[in-house]
Design a binder for these strands. Sequence first.
DNA 1: TATGTGACATCAA
DNA 2: CTTGATGCCACAT
Length: 115
Amino acid sequence: MLLNKKDRPNSFYQKVYEVARQIPFGRVTSYGAIAKYLGAGRSSRMVGYALKSSASTENVPAHRVVNRNGLLTGRHHFVDPTLMEQLLNSEGVEVINNQVVDLKKHFWDPLSELS
DNA sequence: TATGTGACATCAA
DNA sequence: CTTGATGCCACAT
């Protein structure tokens, strides 16, 4: 049967929260990877949008989600813009100048880990 | 219903 | 290398 978009039991946002919460300690992932895992594929922007809405409302480690370049584009939306970089460094992820040094080394792909 | 928006991704020049 | 344009799709108004 066909479901109306408005009648979706779990909103896109809710799924984003679930995946984000499963990001292991000291690991990071990208918006595109999450979007692809959710089936949205090309709605990577929505992932970030969802995290912004969930900020301080949902218990989501948004600081572990960065863009494809490893750049911490979302730091401005935190209570403290420096918090994101500090948290990642505290978890063993090298972040210099708001960018993850070795993204591949710390990258966590939900497609591979969650299958 | 239509329009605007965006914590991205990707390509062309 | 950098900059600009385009695609994409769920959500807000």
